[in-house]
Write a protein that binds this DNA or RNA. Structure first.
Lengths: 343, 343
DNA sequence: TTGTATGCGTTATCAT
DNA sequence: ATGATAACGCATACAA
């Protein structure tokens, strides 16, 4: 009959109700070990009774820690990014952090704005994707002393903390697999390269593999497509429409979504994979192994990458000095979509 | 030579640099129309010069608005949720809001904790999925006066704001499609039902459709499976292993991921779809239409749902009184995986 | 171990 | 149109 929680209670209300100071309440919340058990319980009882929930803004203002981490990714429409974010969120939740998520739609200018928005929200650290960024973006991060790490790309000499892998080399390796099977004319259905270093580097990897065999990528065998299944289908149809002498016997797709499209379109057209044409992808989506034939692709450890990035950030915030350059392995998953060229 | 931005500048620094009061700086930031153009420019120049970025925590503390919205979803491993979140984020970004994202892994207790975490971060509104929630969760939301809306489910009599559709009815309709083709024995590969009202209601919908034809769902024709392609394959194998007299001629899958698994497994087994067995899914993933045969499924407008939820919240925050119960249409996409039973 | 008091960077109210 | 100033709710250095 006497409780009137008209407004949501604050530290002071709890303190009053428990007959202690706000400092004590703050302590049972943040360093319970520092307060005598009896008193702690008394306070905790009131916290429960009044349904107290911390005021993050006030906390952040007073302590300059928000217990939030920001992630800025190209899109959530890509299962592989979504999966990485899922891993990040799960990991952060375990450690008491919350995720602020922003999407760039592969627009570097928009990325800049999103990064600013997250900094304004006071994130304690930030995860970025790739190394293509507006100069101002990295600048802001540094001026604001916001710890950050880039993902999905790795090079020894990277100027900033990163966790990822060598896209060019992975593409080179899976192309080498094609070349070893005896293919000489390789087609490429690349992802959009603008503002996307990963897509560009994967093409470079294909070229490197070809060059090492004194082969070249024919320019009409390279086509750039947006990230969707239909585009993959279009890409395949285009490549297969090339005159026989220029028609590739194997196709490297910049990602699995394009590869799945290419594979499905081949089946629609009655073109046999891998007998008539070999297809490889990149990412190793969960679906890849279930297709028939199974898609030969590059496995990318997106969850591990996300977790590793989060770990770096938390360690960094904690004042530790974790390794800044972290390379993850990528395996070539050889499945059913590759075989020697028909002769 | 004189500028030493050792610490990140605050309102006061800008004010001093521009020779005005903090109130004025705050005004050029928040209601530029209230300040004379000349002065406004002077201030804006300093804002740019010193690279000022707003301190969200301080803003939130003083104004009790954080310009953030929370979303708590089951998982990002599901493309359909990821897509909805993507839409929400894009919409919020347009309107100056930022997204706080949390994942429950279909655990209602964890959802409670995530909701609390987001409330602590001061979100101005919250998006939830489904109507299965811990009692405490909704309670907390209300006590904290945090506007919220549930998605993915709709009923006229819902006790809280919601935007979605009638899962049972959609399932009933696509099952009716099967029955109209002449199927009598329907198999069901359902998603996990625990803590997932949508999965449960879809099964109810199947039962309703059957009942209206005086048919019943045979209990060994109903199997519950986790959300992945492999599980869909297992499910199909199980149903096809039933003795001929009990074997279903058509299969309702609780979602497209299971349906895709079922379809692929049928193809692996040399079972022809739809001649030997019809398969329907639920969600209409982008891939569904590209499969061969194309997957007959229920189209769910996940992006529109997310945007609608965000709109409701923003309107609600703005003090408007938007419609609280919003039903979205779901179309049955009849494609190639359904046909009359072989006779 | 507990309490007191100050300050965190804004917004908003009230003057001017 | 602009300035002075009091909250906002908490953490923390310091005192007891």
């Amino acid at each position: 009959m006497s409780e009137k929680p008209l407004n949501t209670p604050n530290l002071q209300d709890i303190a009053t109700a428990a007959g202690v100071s706000t400092a004590t309440v703050s302590r049972v919340l943040n360093s319970p070990a520092d307060v005598r058990p009896a008193m702690r319980e008394r306070v905790e009882a009131q916290i429960r009774a009044l349904g107290y929930v911390r005021h993050g803004a006030a906390r952040a203002l007073a302590s300059s820690r928000s217990f939030t981490i920001g992630a800025v990714i190209p899109t959530l429409e890509s299962a592989i990014f979504a999966s990485g974010v899922d891993a990040v969120e799960n990991y952060l939740a375990e450690t008491g952090y919350t995720l602020l998520l922003a999407v760039t739609n592969y627009d570097l200018q928009h990325e800049y704005e999103q990064v600013q928005a997250l900094i304004e929200r006071g994130v304690d650290g930030m995860i970025l994707v790739g190394r293509d960024h507006d100069a101002g973006t990295l600048n802001m991060l540094e001026r604001q002393r916001c710890p950050f790490i880039t993902t999905w790309t790795y090079t020894e000499e990277a100027a900033h903390p990163c966790v990822g892998f060598d896209n060019a080399d992975a593409a080179r390796r899976i192309t080498a697999h094609l070349l070893e099977l005896g293919h000489k004319r390789i087609g490429v259905i690349a992802g959009v390269t603008e503002g996307n270093d990963r897509a560009r580097e994967r093409i470079i990897g294909v070229r490197t593999a070809l060059r090492s065999r004194r082969l070249k990528l024919q320019e009409d065998c390279l086509i750039e497509k947006p990230y969707d299944v239909g585009a993959g289908r279009d890409g395949l149809r285009y490549l297969m429409s090339l005159p026989k002498s220029k028609r590739p016997t194997a196709i490297f797709c910049g990602n699995d979504v394009l590869a799945i499209g290419a594979l499905l379109e081949a089946q629609h057209m009655g073109i046999h994979v891998p007998d008539d044409v070999s297809i490889v992808g990149f990412d190793d989506l969960p679906l890849a192994e279930h297709l028939s034939p199974g898609l030969t692709t590059v496995h990318v450890p997106s969850r591990r990458m996300g977790i590793s990035a989060a770990q770096y950030l938390l360690a960094s915030i904690a004042g530790e000095s974790p390794a800044t350059h972290n390379e993850l392995p990528t395996d070539i998953m050889v499945r059913g979509t590759t075989a020697p060229p028909r002769r």
